[in-house]
Simulated scan of single mutants.
Amino acid sequence: MLVGSTRAAPAADVSPSPWPTVARAVALLTVGISLLLTAFAWPSVRSSVHDVPIAVAGPAPAVERITSVLDQRFPDGFEVTDVADTAAAERLIRDREVYGAIDLSSGTPQVITASAASTSVAQTLNSIATALVQAQGTGPAAAARDLVPLPADDPRGTGLAAGALPLVMGGLVAALLLPRLLRGSVRRVTGALAFAVTGGFAVAAILQFWFGSLDGSYWANCGAIALTVAAVSLTVLGLESLLGYIGFGLGAATMMLIGNPLSGTATAPEMLPGWSGTLGQLLPPGAGGQLLRSSAFFDGYGATRSATVLAAWLTLGLVLCLAGGLRTRPSAASAAAEDPAALAAA
């Protein structure tokens, strides 16, 4: 028999897709790219001040004048807290209750900011407050003072802002790879938690010791990063264990297309349009960014809400993983009759 006769016959020609199918595919891609653009560009394009908490310190008449002008020029732009003196304003800033202060309590007005909380708000407050003080004729242009500055090696906070996306991507990659590398829900959860810890060590070391983007306790920063990665990875891992690829897609879209653009890490949640900043703080990327700022620059002040949000997502992820494991256990038990190793992998 000739060798050539053993070769398979050429595959039959496949008919090309009908033109309506091509049109549907193009429409789907167009919708997809439009959603991506909207998700990532809309928060930046529509960024402005919305209910940004600040303090105004000084005599009651001066505080009332400045507050009135703020309300007139920037409706709903600021939430003003009246304080008596500089010390009270600084305490609110360090406790992360306000982003900055306009201090009229001394002879020379000054603007007290915290660029570590948000460089965007600090810049906005400097420009607005200086113009307001000059317009009111209360004295010379206000002096600027950064009470909680960013590290000298990263004065614009670039590393912190850029690090938000890798945290989310790391959690998604873990949720994507672990089900394909490990068998058994317990082993997958253990792998996700272990990766969150080791990833926290690595990312915090890079940001703090190499890039110089973080201050504060290295261990606290590790914990903030690890909690964020664990919340993302376990939530998506749990959704995938229950719903398969649909669950992974749902989790990835929630974290990437909603959570990351609305995190406010690059600016501030109050700078995002409408309700989006509030929504972003209820998702792991936004809560993780705020928690890391608190641990790195404010000695943990203002971290309670963010830590609670992340712990809730982490718990949800564990519950989903448990539910997914229980759902697959009956099929694994039946398979064990033919292959005892299948039961051990369940």
Rank of each mutant, 00 (worst) to 15 (best):
residue 277 G to V: 01
residue 291 L to D: 10
residue 315 T to W: 03
residue 336 A to S: 14
residue 340 P to G: 10
residue 313 W to C: 11
residue 333 A to F: 08
residue 306 S to C: 10
residue 288 G to V: 07
residue 286 G to R: 05
residue 301 Y to R: 07
residue 267 T to N: 09
residue 257 L to V: 09
residue 305 R to S: 13
residue 271 M to Q: 10
residue 341 A to V: 07
residue 270 E to Y: 04
residue 265 T to V: 15
residue 337 A to T: 08
residue 324 G to N: 13
residue 285 P to F: 00
residue 288 G to Q: 09
residue 304 T to F: 02
residue 292 L to G: 05
residue 304 T to M: 12
residue 272 L to T: 04
residue 266 A to C: 02
residue 256 M to A: 13
residue 304 T to Q: 09
residue 326 L to G: 00
residue 301 Y to N: 14
residue 333 A to V: 15
residue 302 G to D: 05
residue 316 L to H: 01
residue 304 T to K: 04
residue 310 L to F: 10
residue 270 E to G: 03
residue 274 G to P: 02
residue 325 G to C: 13
residue 333 A to Y: 10
residue 341 A to W: 02
residue 264 G to Q: 14
residue 284 P to K: 08
residue 295 S to T: 09
residue 322 L to C: 11
residue 341 A to N: 04
residue 295 S to H: 11
residue 288 G to F: 05
residue 312 A to N: 04
residue 296 A to N: 07
residue 325 G to A: 10
residue 269 P to Q: 10
residue 276 S to G: 04
residue 293 R to H: 08
residue 293 R to C: 06
residue 278 T to D: 01
residue 337 A to K: 03
residue 329 R to L: 12
residue 290 Q to K: 04
residue 298 F to H: 12
residue 259 G to L: 08
residue 331 S to T: 11
residue 311 A to G: 08
residue 288 G to S: 04
residue 268 A to P: 12
residue 324 G to P: 11
residue 283 L to Q: 03
residue 306 S to Q: 14
residue 323 A to W: 13
residue 283 L to W: 02
residue 328 T to Q: 15
residue 318 L to V: 14
residue 283 L to K: 00
residue 342 A to D: 08
residue 258 I to H: 01
residue 320 L to E: 12
residue 318 L to C: 12
residue 276 S to K: 03
residue 263 S to K: 05
residue 259 G to P: 05
residue 279 L to C: 04
residue 294 S to A: 15
residue 310 L to D: 10
residue 308 T to V: 07
residue 291 L to M: 14
residue 298 F to M: 04
residue 301 Y to E: 15
residue 307 A to C: 06
residue 267 T to R: 09
residue 301 Y to G: 03
residue 314 L to W: 08
residue 300 G to A: 11
residue 274 G to K: 12
residue 338 E to M: 12
residue 255 M to R: 12
